[in-house]
Amino acid sequence: MDSDERETVGPAEPAFGVGELMERAAGRAVPVVAAIADGDLERPTPCAQYTVKDLVNHLIQVLVQFQALAAKGESDFSGAPDFVGEDAAGWRDRFAREASALVAAWSRPGAEEGTAGAMNMPARLVGSMALLDLTVHAWDLARATDQRYEAPAEVVGPLIAAVSELGPTARRMNVFGAEVEVAASADPFVRLLAATGRRV
């Protein structure tokens, strides 16, 4: 076959859809949240501005708002709902329900297509932002409450790519801390955490 007959090869399709990756991340995050004791809620977390309670509230808000973004709706992060305080007995179940709903929302046909959000970002990248929170904040909560957490291997590579794209803006907005230097041979998840400003 000469050069004129060769087919043009485009970019490889992602190995997993965002919904599939979220399902794997949720499978690790839900048990961490379920195991948080009431006495853990005022503990500090690796996110300096958040206690465990604050971070659970933030993460539930992320799960809810990114369901709307999957449907090309608008998100609203202007408030700070107190899901934990409003439902002291049921917030762990609420987290599990919202995580399941997030997975379903991003698994629907068309969720990854086009743009989403007020900034008209590529929808897959928007989904990766929720995936990042579901993964990294699960680690934060596990670290704060003396639990073990291991990120799903298939999630880490796509998140490293997303953080590489989002990082400069996120650091200017103080969403990420300054990148922590780690060895090139470090575990990929350690490198992901370091890229968001976390020390392991």
Rank of each mutant, 00 (worst) to 15 (best):
L166M: 12
D87V: 14
T8A: 14
D133H: 13
A151W: 11
P188L: 06
G157Q: 12
A89N: 15
A37M: 06
L141S: 03
R108I: 11
V18T: 14
L131H: 04
N57V: 01
G117C: 11
V56G: 05
V52W: 00
V62T: 10
G19L: 01
D2I: 14
A162D: 03
V182D: 00
R172H: 05
G127V: 01
N57L: 02
A70H: 01
E181H: 10
G19S: 04
V9I: 02
A96H: 09
F189G: 03
G27L: 13
G27W: 08
T115H: 07
G73I: 11
A195S: 15
F95V: 05
G10Y: 13
P158Y: 01
A99Q: 07
R191H: 06
D93V: 10
A48V: 10
A29R: 04
M173G: 03
E13K: 11
F16A: 12
A144Y: 06
V33M: 08
E113M: 09
R24D: 13
A70K: 00
M129R: 11
P152F: 05
N57T: 10
A161C: 06
A186Q: 07
D2W: 08
V163I: 04
A37F: 09
D4H: 13
F189A: 01
A29F: 10
V163G: 00
G17H: 06
A184Y: 01
M129Y: 04
P158Q: 06
D76M: 03
V9A: 09
A12K: 09
E150P: 00
A104E: 12
E86W: 08
V9W: 01
A183W: 07
E179C: 03
E20H: 07
S185V: 03
A99E: 03
G90I: 05
L21H: 07
G157N: 15
R6H: 07
G90V: 12
S100A: 15
V18C: 12
M129F: 09
Q147M: 04
L141P: 00
Q67E: 13
R108Y: 04
P46K: 05
S75H: 13
D140F: 03
D40A: 04
A101Q: 12
D82V: 11
S164G: 15
P46H: 00
R28N: 14
Y149C: 07
G73C: 08
V9H: 05
M121L: 10
A71H: 12
W139M: 10
G10S: 08
R199D: 07
A184T: 14
R28H: 14
R172Q: 11
D187T: 00
D93E: 15
T196K: 10
A153R: 13
R172K: 13
E179M: 04
L69R: 06
E86S: 15
L132I: 08
P14H: 14
A183V: 03
E181C: 10
V30W: 06
A71D: 09
I36R: 05
G127N: 02
A118V: 13
A142P: 02
A123W: 03
D93Q: 13
V30Q: 03
E98L: 10
A118R: 15
D87Q: 14
A68L: 14
M173V: 02
L69T: 01
A80L: 09
A178C: 09
V64G: 08
E112A: 09
Q65A: 07
T51F: 11
A34G: 09
